[in-house]
Design a protein around this nucleic acid. Structure first.
Lengths: 109, 109
DNA sequence: CAGTTATATAACCGACTTGTTATATATCTG
DNA sequence: CAGATATATAACAAGTCGGTTATATAACTG
């Protein structure tokens, strides 16, 4: 899910649903099968769903999967923020500049 | 930088500096060269620095690189949060349940 | 200096990822 | 049903990643 193409696809789907050919047009740098593969990944991840409309497959977002993703990202970013906070504090401290200063922009001040 | 071993290494460095052998001991599941490789990645990323102490190489955190990482993560998480917010709103809207409700925990409410 | 200790690097490997081209499948249409 | 259109899948190639073993390098020590 760190793939930029896939992120862009979800981006597009935020606004409205899209058929595969929409995506093929939107990403001229990659082939149709590549697009289909990305969509398959998103499908398998439960992030999108498909409706059959004539020969077209129309993709739209799938709320449940997105909630999960949301949670995952939240967890992830908390993990990182914790580390980085602790870390910068430690460093600020260590540098003996202003002990106990709680990382206030680390700029000018 | 999503690698769990590397995250754990930074974790350890949050508390105090460590020599390579410290890490080798801390990660018994991987070999010494593997540890050195991870450290090289962190070095190249500017996240840690090394001091030579006798035969040992002592690693500690590098504030500048971490600030960058911090910024990167911040950007990343904003990007995602935006997307997911817009997305869930759109979906909530689309489902015709309660138009314009601004995702209040999507629970009980 | 010879040997030991601590770490880094080289060469290689298997797994996974993202792309490709070629082909199969599904749906509509005359 | 035959053909066209839209999409999916198969088979393959190249790149990256994280690991390995073997070896080189650096610094201390007798």
């Amino acid at each position: 899910m760190a793939d930029p193409t896939r992120r862009a696809m979800l981006d597009l789907l935020c606004k409205q649903e899209h058929s595969v050919s929409d995506f093929v047009d939107a990403f001229p740098s990659i082939s149709q099968p590549a697009v289909s593969k990305h969509l398959k990944v998103l499908r398998d991840a439960g992030l999108v769903r498909v409706q059959t409309r004539a020969q077209q497959r129309v993709y739209s977002l799938q709320p449940e999967g997105l909630a999960e993703l949301d949670a995952w990202i939240a967890k992830y970013k908390v993990l990182w923020s914790e580390n980085l906070d602790a870390l910068e504090e430690y460093l600020a401290d260590r540098k003996q500049k202003k002990p106990k200063e709680k990382r206030s922009k680390k700029r000018s001040e």
